[in-house]
Write a protein that binds this DNA or RNA. Structure first.
Lengths: 195, 195
DNA sequence: CATGTTCTAGAGGGTACTCTCCATATTAAT
DNA sequence: ATTAATATGGAGAGTACCCTCTAGAACATG
């Protein structure tokens, strides 16, 4: 018993992703998103409580989409070492097939106005972070890398390093080179070797 | 034969750095900088052609200040391997003593409106980038790491990896842990070992 | 002291964006 | 058909910011 929506939420978020990739988070204005899909600005405020809520949703949908495959990769393969390599590879491969979303990930939640997010979305973000931390800690334990220093080294190996590799290229506007997955895997492996 | 300035350029840039570190590049507005030092907005336009010029100057002063010590570190030590380790260490140590400037570096020139910069400042930025590329290429050659893949691996080792380590902590608002330099050096060394 | 130069001081126009509001339209269920 | 629920469509108030512009203050030099 209601008028059907002309604009799907996912359609609005797609436009927001495109804008964020092209002009940065600050380019994701309510009017820009509305104009991109041909909707009046009022319609946006039926879906999102305000700009912070929209930015949070764009960020969370992207991160959660990324993490889905990331955790699967971490658990894959034969043993923790292979899982780490696969995870590193996944970061690069996913970025290759989702260049706009990857560009978005490189900004970080803070640039998407995290400080202004509504309670519930902050919770979702925290939960994702916790899951990553837990997975990294489990990997570090399985590899015998203990202590604060070991944990941080594993984080660098399976999270920050592959992201750095992606950043280096995407920020320059170039696509990822063919050998990127290979390089990420090699470097991750080198860092996972106990020093 | 002129009235002495009440506001030094460096004083304005200092305020801009503080604002950028706290609120991001978008927080560096002309009025915010003016208000931070107690100057009228008009005075800012005597020093800088406009907002893009101010942002460019903030970025360039910071990057050039950082690079000064970075190149010295790269050339220091005994052989290329030690130079790479020292450079990695320098990134972390400099970030520790210059937390605000480091936060600024983590954003990247693009976020500081690089696309709108005046010609001359674009040139300065390019020159800095070229010097880094050349130094990294020289290091890769001395280490016997050849080809596109080797070059990129060395870049990751002595530039992106230590920056990632810094980013992980500073973006969370925490200071760098005591062992950060040590960890950076170890990881860089692991990556500089030919795979 | 007179002069020319550089700077301060701050008002205000122009622009872009966020968000509110309300009349109107569309649908499902009664 | 009526009604309740939900959406559109778009005008416009409020706000923040960039930048310009003019008047005059402060200083070194002749």
């Amino acid at each position: 018993m209601a008028r059907p929506p002309r604009f799907e939420i996912s359609q609005l978020l797609d436009a927001a992703v495109r804008l964020a990739a092209e002009h940065g988070p600050s380019g994701v204005t309510m009017s820009a998103v509305a104009q991109a899909v041909g909707a009046p600005s009022g319609s946006l405020y039926h879906r999102f409580a305000g700009r912070p809520a929209l930015l949070a949703e764009v960020w969370l949908r992207t991160v959660e989409g990324f993490q889905e495959g990331y955790f699967a990769a971490l658990r894959s393969g034969d043993g923790p070492r292979a899982g780490g390599r696969a995870a590193s590879r996944h970061v690069v491969a996913w970025s290759r097939t989702h260049p706009q979303e990857a560009a978005l990930l490189l900004y970080g939640a803070h640039e998407f106005g995290r400080d202004d997010w509504p309670e519930e979305q902050l919770r979702r973000a925290d939960e994702g972070n916790m899951r990553v931390r837990a997975a990294v800690a489990a990997l570090a334990g399985a590899l015998g890398l203990h202590g604060e220093l070991g944990l941080e080294r594993v984080s660098l190996a399976v999270v920050d390093l592959p992201l750095s590799l992606v950043r280096r290229h995407l920020r320059g506007g170039e696509p990822l080179p063919a050998h990127a997955e290979e390089l990420a895997e090699q470097c991750t492996d080198a860092l996972l070797t106990a020093g």
